[in-house]
Design a protein around this nucleic acid. Structure first.
Lengths: 231, 231
DNA sequence: TGTACATCAGTGAACGCGCGTTCACTGATGTAC
DNA sequence: TGTACATCAGTGAACGCGCGTTCACTGATGTAC
């Protein structure tokens, strides 16, 4: 996209000429994402992505084995962007554990609200059913996001904001599920009665985190003081 | 499907002959669902559904305007079946409000576990983005499920299991989001570290409800005793 | 009871389409000498 | 520095395919008389 003409000061990734694109793989991810955003996932084809990238319709096969591989790359890019946003949100909390926890979960919801179609692709059924085996990069990117959440939960455990005797992964998983489901249902307009403006949606999602967080605190303390759970 | 040959004792819906099918619309929903279950949503086409129903490839157009209409009918059927299961689960709780709440949420998760592909179709992006305007029947069926949950929440409020000063729809929405997201993430194998057997998944989903429920109790009592929330 | 007729669910052939994928090729690039 | 060559990203034509949808039709059914 940028630097279509060769430039002696460029690094090797952005080399380009009229014939050689330079970084067609990334360009196809971008144009593919553009199609998903503008026309929906059903409109995405390798040919359409190639056309939009200004390249012949067979060119994508130099970089992707098949259509699903492009989809997986677009999804992986989504998790990478989400991860970046999560990291920045945590950094903005300046070391306050509870603020970190709020920030990272809110950022997740914010991503769903802003990048709905990209988000849907990241969790599309054509990928999720077999992503572990077929798309290790995608899986790694997704787990990277999850690990960020786990890290914040661990920090909160150290600060006694969350109970320390509960598996941090399980706790993070609960939070993830809660915010994931709520965000999707709101974005799909299943709860218009709650108000449909972005502000109302945003507020409700944030309250969802607070609500579940209360449960995690209580739930974990009950476990701590009560009888141990069965294996 | 049943009663391919005419029978004088049948009602009008199950009339059939070699030429006239009898209830092709419902048969197409069934065969379409069968394709989704066996080969995935990508394999569903009007032609494939027609072939599997033993009928010419143009016949579906007598009953569905287009492919999306068939998809919407399959999704609607899913919500109807889910609703039926929810009602039965509630009935089995025999009037114990908390047991009803557990039963209805667990049944939701059970449906996701057992009917994963059908469930995915019910929330597929090709339908959710415009279901309100385009598919009123689908929307109605979905809301019917939600109202079942709202009803149980109201019962719990009457029994002081949940705070009475909080909107029942909002509370039910939180629960829905929590269980919806957790179920999906588990079914999509994003949390294999928690254990991937159906039993482990089931147990974890159930704990998710308990966890969130604790939050709703605490959260709502805090609201009750604290300052009122801003509008 | 018997017959003519309207209705309409299902037929089968056809349309145009865009897609995924393959393949021999072309031409730009970097490098070994 | 200049040249021959290997490499490989991108080309363009072609393949076969299944799809969504249309259309004039056929034949089974129910009903009015």
């Amino acid at each position: 996209m940028k630097n279509v003409k060769g430039n002696p000061n460029e690094n090797s990734l952005s080399k380009a000429s009229a014939y050689h694109h330079g970084d067609l793989k990334q360009a196809l991810v971008e144009t593919g994402l553009g199609i998903i955003r503008k026309q929906g996932a059903h409109a995405l084809s390798l040919r359409a992505a190639a056309r939009k990238a200004g390249v012949s319709e067979a060119a994508p096969y130099r970089h992707f084995h098949n259509k699903e591989a492009l989809l997986a790359s677009i999804a992986e890019e989504g998790f990478n962007r989400l991860h970046q946003r999560m990291v920045e949100a945590i950094a903005a909390a300046q070391g306050d554990p509870l603020a970190e926890l709020h920030a990272v979960t809110w950022e997740y919801a914010e991503f769903v609200l802003q990048e709905t179609d990209h988000f849907r692709t990241m969790f599309s059924s054509s990928l999720t059913s077999s992503h572990a085996a077929k798309h290790p990069g995608l899986r790694k990117a997704a787990l990277q996001c999850f690990e960020e959440l786990v890290g914040v939960v661990r920090t909160c455990q150290k600060s006694h904001i969350l109970a320390r005797n509960v598996d941090a992964q399980a706790t993070a998983g609960r939070l993830w599920g809660s915010i994931h489901g709520m965000s999707i249902l709101l974005v799909d307009q299943y709860m218009v009665f709650l108000g449909a403006t972005p502000e109302q949606t945003r507020a409700f999602v944030r309250q969802q985190v607070d609500s579940h967080l209360q449960g995690l605190r209580t739930f974990t303390s009950v476990q701590h003081s009560g009888k141990p759970k069965r294996a």
